[in-house]
């Protein structure tokens, strides 16, 4: 493959977990809740799905356990935030702290190992449509030759679009974020939709986490490495719209692929590269608030 194709190909690989987690986060974001806990939800999902796959050798059961455990944690965040009236930011942080603690503790408890747990017996995730990868110039590496998770992320994004913009449930969910009183006035509970959104976010984050660990056939502590935070950035950058998420996550994918590539040429310090997403979001948020401020001033 030439450089451009390989950059595009690895951009898609990098963007997949981001896109999955961001799609889940979109649900909470649209209900007006800032879900800081995506990182923790991903980590827990990554751990529990690969571990349950190892023990059960049953992919369905593994998915159920993996997503189930993340959804349980999401339910904890949601109920403490919504029903015990806690600050959603702090509960999200607690979820992250909890997930990183509990995965290490459980990994030590189950495998007597705090570090990398490898499962060599797990099969490689099959690569789909491999033939097409080099057949078409730009679209080839974009669309073909990826694992099941990449296609799943596209499907789930499309499904989410349908759910959010074409179903009654989606209308109510978005109304929650836009104007919660509109739900109250017709006798629906905004909190209920916020709770459900958290559960959905837990589900998506778990799938994103599962992709990281199952693809690797191993669990590495802190395997998510900040991807949950980047997913939040993707949501903001994508202006909270499904198509926007797709574009924003691809931008992140391509920029990281490029920085990986560039490291071999210019030796940019890796810490700077890791800092880029945060600076990027900061700038995006500041610009957004300037825009918002001026818009309100005009009105």
């Amino acid at each position: 493959m030439d450089t451009v194709s390989s950059l595009i190909f690895s951009a898609v690989t990098i963007m997949t977990p981001l896109l999955l987690a961001a799609t889940g986060g979109l649900y909470t974001e649209l209900t007006g809740m800032l879900n800081i806990g995506i990182e923790g939800l991903m980590l827990l999902g990554a751990f529990s799905s690969v571990v349950s796959l190892h023990f059960t050798h049953n992919i369905v059961l593994a998915i159920l356990i993996g997503t189930g455990s993340s959804m349980l944690l999401a339910a904890v965040i949601a109920s403490i935030t919504l029903y015990l009236k806690a600050n959603v930011f702090i509960t999200g942080l607690a979820a992250n702290l909890f997930a990183s603690g509990i995965t290490t503790v459980l990994s030590f408890h189950i495998f007597a190992n705090k570090g990398v747990v490898t499962f060599p017996e797990l099969p490689q995730m099959p690569v789909l449509f491999e033939r097409g990868t080099e057949a078409v110039p730009v679209l080839g590496p974009l669309l073909f030759g990826h694992t099941f998770f990449t296609y799943l992320s596209f499907i789930l994004l499309f499904l989410s679009y349908v759910v959010l913009y074409r179903t009654p449930f989606g209308f109510r969910l978005r109304a929650t974020g836009l104007y919660p009183k509109s739900l109250i006035s017709v006798g629906l509970s905004p909190k209920r939709y916020q709770f459900i959104a958290f559960l959905i976010s837990g589900f998506f984050s778990a799938v994103a986490g599962a992709m990281l660990s199952v693809n690797l056939g191993a669990f590495v502590p802190n395997i998510t490495a900040g991807k949950g935070w980047v997913a939040l950035v993707v949501i903001f950058l994508g202006q909270k719209r499904p198509v926007g998420l797709l574009i924003a996550s691809f931008i992140f994918g391509i920029s990281e692929a490029f920085s990986n590539y560039a490291q071999g040429i210019w030796h940019i310090p890796s810490d700077f590269i890791l800092a880029i997403p945060y600076i990027f979001t900061l700038v995006a948020i500041v610009f957004y608030s300037i825009y918002d401020y001026n818009r309100q001033k005009v009105e």
Partner: peptide, 22 residues
């Protein structure tokens, strides 16, 4: 036990400490 035990305890404190109801 491993040191992560304390991060679980701290997470629990975090979870609860900002709850207005509690």
């Amino acid at each position: 036990v491993t040191f992560e035990l304390s991060s679980i305890v701290q997470a629990t404190v975090f979870f609860l400490v900002s709850s207005v109801t509690l």
